[in-house]
C-alpha cells in the first residue's frame, strides 16, 4: 500500500488570507480517495497546488516518489497525473473528437518539423489515437457527438468530456474537481460507474465532491479539509460518524 501521491505541509496564502495552512494528503496507489470540506475550505486551491497551477508557498508534493512541487504543470501531466476543472472547460471550437485527440501524449505530429519529415508515422499515430478516442467516447456515451463542436455540449456532457479527455492521456492518477456538480442523477450514476470501471483497470482517483452519495459510494478513503487545515481522515464510515466532521460540514 504505497502512496502514489503525497503532500506534506502545503501552505498557500493570498494576501492576508491563509487559503491552505499546513495541510497534508495522501493517495494510495490504486485507490479512489475523496477530498471533502465546506465551501471555502481550500479544496480547489489544494488541487491547484498539487498540480502546480498555483505554486505552493511551502510544503512538499511527491508523485510516484518524485518531488513535483517545482515542476511545471504540463510536466506533471506528462508524468501521469492529470487534473480536471471545477467548471468544466471544453475547447469550444474544436470538435469533441479533437478534444480527445489533443490529449494523446507523445504525439510525433506535435513537433512542427515532424509534420514534414514523418508524415506516415503521424498518420498512423492519428489513426491509433482516433480508435482509442472513439472507444472512450463510446464508453461515455458521446460517440454521436464526436464531430460536433465541443462548445455545443451541455454542462453534464462537458463533465463527461473532461473525464474522457483525462483518460485519453493514459494517466495513473486523475484529480477530479466536482465531477457530479450540476449533473442529473442518472448521469451521476453513469459517471460513478466509469470511475469504478477505470479504477479496476489500475487508475487512481482523487475526487473533490459535495455529493455525499458519490463520496461514500466510491471512496476508499476520505480526507476532510476545513479552513485550509486537515480536519480528519478515514474510511467513509469513520468520517460519517466523526464528531468534528459532523459539526463542521455534514451536520447532525
Amino acid at each position: 500500500m504505497s502512496a502514489i501521491l503525497s503532500a506534506t505541509g502545503l501552505v498557500k496564502s493570498f494576501g492576508g488570507v491563509q487559503a491552505v495552512d499546513r495541510a497534508d494528503l495522501e493517495v494510495i496507489s490504486g485507490s479512489i480517495t475523496g477530498l471533502i470540506g465546506p465551501n471555502g475550505a481550500g479544496k480547489t486551491t489544494f488541487f491547484n497546488l498539487l498540480s502546480n497551477f498555483i505554486t505552493p508557498d511551502d510544503g512538499i508534493v511527491q508523485f510516484k516518489g518524485d518531488r513535483i512541487d517545482k515542476l511545471q504543470p504540463h510536466r506533471i501531466a506528462r508524468k501521469g497525473m492529470v487534473r480536471t476543472f471545477q467548471v468544466a472547460r471544453a475547447l469550444s471550437r474544436l470538435s469533441v473528437l479533437e478534444n480527445l485527440l489533443l490529449a494523446t501524449q507523445n504525439q510525433t505530429g506535435e513537433t512542427f518539423w515532424n509534420v514534414w519529415t514523418q508524415p506516415k508515422r503521424i498518420a498512423l499515430e492519428e489513426k491509433q489515437a482516433r480508435d482509442r478516442a472513439m472507444e472512450i467516447l463510446d464508453s461515455i456515451g458521446l460517440i454521436q457527438k464526436a464531430n460536433d463542436y465541443a462548445g455545443g455540449l451541455s454542462g453534464g456532457q462537458r463533465k463527461l468530456l473532461e473525464i474522457g479527455r483525462a483518460m485519453m492521456t493514459k494517466p495513473e492518477l486523475i484529480l477530479l474537481d466536482e465531477p457530479a456538480a450540476g449533473v442529473n442523477p442518472t448521469l451521476i450514476n453513469q459517471i460513478c460507474d466509469y470511475i469504478q470501471y477505470w479504477n479496476r483497470q489500475g487508475v487512481s482517483f482523487l475526487i473533490i465532491e459535495h455529493n455525499m452519495d458519490v463520496i461514500m459510494g466510491l471512496c476508499d478513503r476520505v480526507w476532510v479539509l476545513a479552513e485550509g487545515r486537515n480536519l480528519a481522515v478515514g474510511t467513509p464510515e469513520e468520517i460519517q460518524t466523526n464528531d468534528k466532521v459532523l459539526e463542521a460540514y455534514l451536520g447532525a
Partner: peptide, 29 residues
Amino acid sequence: ETLVRSPWGRVLKAIREDEEVAKALGKNV
C-alpha cells in the same frame, strides 16, 4: 494549411480556446 491541420496545429487551436486546458493535458503552452 499543412501546419494547422496537423496535431501541432491542434495544440495551437487548443491554446486559443483555453490555455489552462492545454497545460493540464501536458502541452508546453
